[in-house]
Simulated scan of single mutants.
Amino acid sequence: MVTNSFKHAFPAGRKGEIKINLHKSETSARVNRISSQDEDCKDSFNYILEVSDNGKGIPEEIDTKSSNSLGFQLVNILVEQIDGFLEIKSNKGTQFTIWFNNIEI
């Protein structure tokens, strides 16, 4: 996600800002196994990772879930592997938010 920001968010040497934030969810006391497809499940996750930039944003015509872009494919696959939930917003830049639980190795 950070690499995508460096590569796409700031064309022609434009300056910008990339933020990375990882924190525990306020509702992390709940530990339910819920499908990553259920958007209403955000309260069931323990952690939230946010990666955002104030760049040009993602063009509206790009479907981030079915894009041929290697970056989007990798993000979607990794979120799926950790049984997480991904939300992408593109308004005054781009924001990736990933909700997930403890990952056991």
Rank of each mutant, 00 (worst) to 15 (best):
K65I: 01
N68Y: 01
S28P: 11
F96I: 03
S5D: 09
N101F: 05
N54H: 09
E87H: 09
L74D: 13
L70V: 13
I18N: 06
F10G: 03
T94A: 07
F85K: 15
L22N: 00
T3M: 07
H23K: 15
Q81D: 09
E17S: 00
I20D: 04
S67C: 11
K19G: 05
E26K: 10
S66W: 03
D83C: 10
N54L: 00
K65P: 03
T27G: 08
Q37N: 09
I77G: 13
W99Q: 01
I18W: 01
G93S: 08
P59N: 00
G13L: 05
L74N: 15
E17A: 03
Q81K: 15
A12I: 04
I82T: 09
S44Y: 08
E61K: 14
K89Q: 14
I34W: 02
C41I: 02
N32G: 08
T3A: 08
T64S: 03
I98E: 03
S25M: 07
I98W: 00
I48F: 06
M1L: 10
D83E: 13
L78N: 02
I103C: 01
K24L: 03
F100A: 02
L70A: 12
I98N: 06
A29Y: 14
K65E: 14
I62V: 10
G55Y: 08
V51P: 14
S90E: 04
G16E: 04
N46Y: 11
R33I: 15
S66D: 14
I20H: 02
E50H: 04
N91L: 13
N54Q: 09
T94S: 00
N54V: 00
V31D: 15
W99S: 00
T94I: 13
L86E: 08
K65V: 05
N68A: 05
T64Q: 04
E17R: 05
V51R: 11
Y47T: 02
I98F: 00
G16Q: 04
I20F: 09
R14M: 11
R30C: 12
L78A: 08
E61T: 12
D43G: 03
R14F: 02
K89Y: 00
F10S: 00
F6D: 00
L86S: 08
S90M: 09
G57W: 01
R14A: 12
N54G: 01
L49K: 13
D53V: 05
D63K: 10
L22P: 10
S66P: 03
G93T: 06
T3K: 15
K56H: 01
T64V: 15
